[in-house]
Design a protein around this nucleic acid. Structure first.
Length: 347
DNA sequence: GGATCCTTCTTCTTCTTC
């Protein structure tokens, strides 16, 4: 109940948080029970020795002297007084109003062999208002996500200062970009082993490349790299990191860098939705003569710890495709609300 | 030349006990 009181959300959100909290609590209790009965925990699947330096580096920067009172004061200062929750019936899982197909009806064909394609995004063709996957996901973050992101940002600014925080985020982006460039070079050259690299790399990029080396051994026949995709009827676009075979299965692959270990798919937040969105767009995009039913999210670590590779089979992709359609609907609602508000203002 | 776009990242309670 303490958690609920602290949350600065309006009624409906607080109820969602209560559901989330009880679910989490139930999960923890279930895990604890199963641990005490059988000595097995889901975290046992994480190789703690392998990730020890990564875990240490994350934990070492988290010395907290917080108490419930200081947290309460801090939250009240940051988010204002608590809004009491209204009692509401349990919300039902939202479904998209229109379930657009993930795949084309035509028969799935294997992509042609040859070097991977790269279709450059050209926004200057009179359709510049088409939103991108990233923009839509950013604009439709949940209240919970926004709350935790804002809290994280405030804490980082308190620790590093405005300038320090700016530098920190710029460095994160820079590392991600360098990692993508290095990968692009490896995949374009057809070499999937790190020791076949020719260009010198920074120590950070070397760590990330070492981290994904064992994943690259299972990646072959890249078909597209950093290539733009556009949905023919849903009107959104994006740039897909990579389309390649992973263990013989054609996948949309998304490469990520992370400071924290992400051993479970749930640790990757909206990344699976992003992958499903790209795959759905590619499947409807006439410039690609094949379709992709599976996905892969690879999370690489700077210290060279083995990357976490999260596979998304066809069933999971359909699940996340549905979530993407909901986000897309939310984005459109936002847009039309803004437009009607503007019309009212000027009329 | 300047502005804009697509990306690149960031989130999930906390403490005690065994």
């Amino acid at each position: 109940m303490f958690i609920l009181k602290r949350l600065p959300f309006t009624g409906s959100i607080s109820v969602r948080m209560l559901q989330y909290t009880s679910l989490t609590f139930g999960f923890v209790v279930a895990c604890h029970r199963s641990t005490s009965r059988r000595g097995a925990s889901p975290y046992n699947s994480v190789d703690s020795e392998r990730y020890s330096s990564l875990v240490k580096s994350v934990i070492s920067s988290r010395t907290s002297s917080q108490t419930p009172d200081t947290i309460h004061d801090e939250d009240e200062h940051m988010f204002g007084p608590v809004v009491k929750a209204h009692t509401q019936s349990r919300q039902q899982r939202r479904l998209p109003k229109v379930v657009h197909p993930f795949l084309r009806c035509e028969e799935t064909r294997e992509p042609e062999s040859g070097p991977p394609v790269r279709i450059v995004l050209n926004r200057d063709q009179g359709r510049s208002s088409i939103p991108s996957v990233t923009r839509i996901l950013q604009a439709t973050l949940s209240a919970e996500q926004l709350f935790y992101l804002e809290r994280w940002k405030r804490r980082m600014v308190a620790e590093l200062g405005e300038e320090g925080f700016k530098e920190y985020t710029q460095n994160l982006f820079r590392q991600g970009k360098l990692f993508h460039s290095a990968l692009e070079e490896v995949l374009m050259s057809g070499a999937t082993r790190q020791d076949e690299k020719h260009e010198p790399q920074s120590s950070d990029v070397m760590g990330y490349m070492k981290s994904i080396a064992y994943v690259l051994e299972d990646v072959s026949a890249a078909r597209a790299i950093e290539s733009s995709v556009q949905h023919d009827t849903l009107d959104y676009l994006g740039i897909v990191d990579c389309v390649a075979h992973y263990r013989g299965v054609l996948c949309v692959i998304d490469w990520k860098t992370s400071e924290k270990p992400k051993p479970f798919l749930s640790n990757t937040y909206d990344n699976p939705i992003q992958v499903a969105a790209y795959a759905g767009a590619l499947n409807s995009d006439a410039r690609y003569k094949y379709q992709v039913e599976n996905g892969l999210i690879v999370v690489a670590y700077k210290d060279g710890s083995p990357a976490h590779a999260h596979q998304l089979n066809h069933e999971l992709m359909l699940e996340y495709w549905e979530k993407w359609l909901i986000r897309l609907e939310e984005f459109r609602e936002q847009r039309s609300n803004k437009e009607s508000a503007q019309q009212t203002q000027y009329s």
